[in-house]
């Protein structure tokens, strides 16, 4: 565990230094949240048919999304990209560690550090001023906490796959450019998943992406009762395991390619 922990904490501390970027990111996220909330208010105000989610819940869902925005795996992490472009990836191969978990640790740091910096002010601001409700109950709060940890693992697993893909430069670029918009759409980051058409709900439930945002957010709201936390975590962790297996396989293919081509 030691090398992975060392990588995680080193990257984490480095990333914590980007305070100015975090502040600007916070301002941007706040603005986006305000706009999105106003559009939902407008959508709801003219519509009388009952919806699968109340406006209050949607507003909280939006703010949770804004607060945890930096968690999303929307692109290969810049440091992995740089590593591959400069040929530094060769050094990674020389280290007596499992490269997959090393990169996973990098991805984990890349998700957590900016999120810590950005989410705390966002939670405080949104809760005090902008209609973010507190967790539905203590149990909901706990369930949300656990699901968020799993969401971080899931996001890191996806980001790691994007990173590995970069070894096949063009195809890797294609992979993340085609998949990451889907991640945003199918996770609930673009619109709350319960508002997607009824026929799509079955697919959405099975796919891994709802584990990134929809599951933790709805556990927070009590929209999914805390009693169902077990199956939810199982859903997330199963996908983490499957994606990690896939990542290992992909990396071994990538390594063979690197060895053959000489980096």
């Amino acid at each position: 565990m030691r090398p992975y922990w060392a990588m995680l904490s080193a990257r984490f501390r480095t990333l914590l230094q980007y305070r100015a970027a975090a502040l600007a990111g916070f301002g941007t996220q706040l603005f986006f949240g305000v706009v999105i909330v106003m559009t939902y208010q407008a959508f709801y105000s003219a519509n009388t048919t009952p919806q699968p989610m109340s406006l209050e819940h949607v507003v909280s869902y939006i703010w949770l999304g804004q607060a945890l925005f930096a968690l999303m795996p929307w692109a290969p992490d810049a440091d992995i990209r740089l590593l591959i472009r400069t040929g530094g990836v060769a050094y990674e191969l020389l280290r007596p560690v499992n490269v997959y978990w090393l990169w996973f640790s990098r991805a984990l740091a890349r998700r957590t550090a900016p999120t810590v910096l950005r989410s705390i002010p966002m939670f405080i601001t949104a809760m005090l001023l902008l209609g973010l409700q507190p967790p539905a109950s203590l149990a909901s709060g706990l369930a949300w906490g656990m699901a968020t940890v799993c969401a971080v693992l899931l996001a890191s697993a996806i980001a790691t796959i994007f990173g590995i893909g970069m070894i096949w430069t063009i195809s890797g670029e294609g992979l993340h450019r085609l998949v990451s918009p889907l991640v945003m759409l199918l996770s609930g980051m673009l619109i709350p998943l319960p508002l997607m058409p009824a026929w799509s709900q079955t697919f959405l439930r099975v796919l891994p992406f709802r584990g990134l945002a929809d599951i933790p957010f709805r556990l927070y709201l009590g929209d999914i009762p805390p009693s169902s936390v077990g199956p939810m975590l199982l859903h997330q962790l199963t996908w983490v395991a499957l994606l990690a297996l896939f990542g290992h396989w992909l990396l071994s293919r990538a390594m063979r390619r690197l060895v053959v081509q000489g980096g």
Binding site: L178, P181, L185
Partner: peptide, 26 residues
């Protein structure tokens, strides 16, 4: 292609909202 696709998904989200709510501000 990536940029095209990214914004297609964005519009799918808008379409989904209209599918559910019908209109916004008339």
């Amino acid at each position: 292609i990536g940029e095209f696709w990214a914004h297609v998904t964005e519009f799918i989200a808008i379409w989904a909202l209209f599918h559910r709510f019908g209109s916004i501000g008339g």
